[in-house]
Amino acid sequence: MRGIVLKYNQKNINTDLIIPARYLNDSDPEHLGLHCMEDLDHDFKQKKDNLKATIIVADSNFGSGSSREQAPIALKAAGIICIIAPSYARIFYRNAINIGLPIIEFDDISKINTGDELEINFEDGTMNNISNKSEFKIGKMPKFLQEIISIGGLVNFAKKIILEK
């Protein structure tokens, strides 16, 4: 996976900032994607489009607050393919995995800046910052979670179980 970074040096980017509740009366991903991150940064969409960014890097406790799955859905619909942060709120973490949005726990976000191009290899557990020629190890996900991601999300996992019954 390869992509360009848009970074927010902010802790506790909560689900109300990712997708405000006033937009939750409609769960259409396209509608959610249009309003993604707007209360955090009014220019999010413009910045993302100008940079062609697809990876968000943020500080710790990303996705705190509500259980709304609309948060990772909105990010995905806005064209985000991966999130990198030192830590996540637990429901956001499981929601992202469940819908197949890769999410990386990575402490040293000071080594990544807006505009950097990253190459991420989940199987090797490595991340390459092409822009400043540095390479990092990223922790491997537990086997069970890898299985969910590799099968395309929890829906396919459940489908497999139900068909085996």
């Binding site: 259980s67 799955e69 429901i91 929601n95 469940n98």
Partner: peptide
Amino acid sequence: TGVGSTDLGVAMALGKCWFK
């Protein structure tokens, strides 16, 4: 505990949920 909508959809079908 709180979970997401996909977890709920899966639980409604299987009666199961993954946890650490």
